[in-house]
Write a protein that binds this DNA or RNA. Sequence first.
DNA 1: TCTGGGGTCCTAGGACCC
DNA 2: TCTGGGGTCCTAGGACCC
Length: 452
Amino acid sequence: MGSGSGDGSTFYRIIMSTGIIPVSRPLFALVDVNNFYVSCERAFNPNLINRPVVVLSNNDGCAVARSNEVKALGVKMGTPWFQLKDLAKQHGIVALSSNYTLYGDMSNRVMSILRDFSPHVEVYSIDECFLGLQGLQSLWPIPTGIGHKIRHRIRQWTTLPVCVGIGATKTLAKLANHIAKKQPAFHGVCDFSTMSYEQYEALLSTIDAGEVWGVGRQLNLHLNAAGIKTVQALRDTPPAWLRANFGVVIERLGYELRGISCLALEEVLAPKKQIISSRSFGQLIDHLTELSESVASHTSSAAEKLRRQNSVCNAIQVFIRTNPFREQEKQYSNCMTVPLPNASSDTRLLVRAALFGLKRIYRPGYAYKKAGVILTGIDSAAVHQESLFTLHGADDRSARLMKVLDQLNQRYGRETVSVFSVGSNKSWSMQRESMSPCYTTKWQDVPIAYAH
DNA sequence: TCTGGGGTCCTAGGACCC
DNA sequence: TCTGGGGTCCTAGGACCC
């Protein structure tokens, strides 16, 4: 509930006066910046325009963005830089180290422009954004119009080139965007919603099923083996068959291609469910002390991200591995998930746990290439709010829990812990008697931290 | 010689509980 | 004590995405 919005009441009024349910079908746009990192660099260095440019990953390891000129040379995403050097010399490719601060800033500018076009916006990635176009018909009777206006304005205000895809579902909008990028005849805007049936079918029958959002390499192989090669063929495959063979995700994908929207716009930024911090080393290392320094620093930055979203985590995973590309060397890769006695975002506690795990998985005599940590079991409701709870039940655990509560309340100086209630006989469940988010701890955790 | 980093979702299997 | 079915939680691993 909780939707006492104007939309709702209007909806009901119309039903009552006319008896017609005004079903306004959803419509999505996907706006995507072309060659985003390269375009950002060009915005600040016009000398790069019309020249072949790549942006390289951390340690200048591999190409993570390519200009059209570089794509035309056949360079694939993720190609290692050392394999590109000859080609680069030959064609005068400019290689740049990545500058994520710049890209983040440019991304914010684009997103804020898009918010002027629609109140319903999902920032999908640093260079992509879904817009809900539903309800904008009075402003833009033909959706293609809004697409061109968006393109024009972003170009004018940021110099960045974008393409716009429009369709009845997010998957179709993605596909339309892909077409807008690949087929110059569309001038950067592909709008399925106003396209003729013939043109639509002709497009779908020529595009590889592997281009569909959610169809990766593996799935595409399986689809091809089953004779499903084009988007059209995939769409016309019975959803039940898709479910039986590939599961619920692909079944949903099938519906989305049929124009039945299954994926909603996610307008609010959901808190992260896991937070990773990891990096490859510039050179191989083998000592525990060096690994420890790296792991400690990763843990610290991960904990910072965790606190920024007002969360705590209940476990930290630490992992290390050798260089898998050096196939002739002996390989080692391992990880360990270290549970925390209490959910926390405290850097020192997390570092201690991570180093504890690292010591157990570390083996001397290997040349390590990468290390990192993953924070898991994230509880984003833990916002340190005061809440009032009651305790039900009467077995000895109640008394023990009360004691624990006292200890925690003393420690934090306020009511921070949720209380458990007793079910019918022996089952315990958490019960919150407050609407506000609370800090929760699990019954199983209690004896570990407060056994004595 | 040199090969990124950060996410999500789903599934399977084991431990444990009732 | 006999027993099975149903449920949760956790972890690992795969596939996919940008």
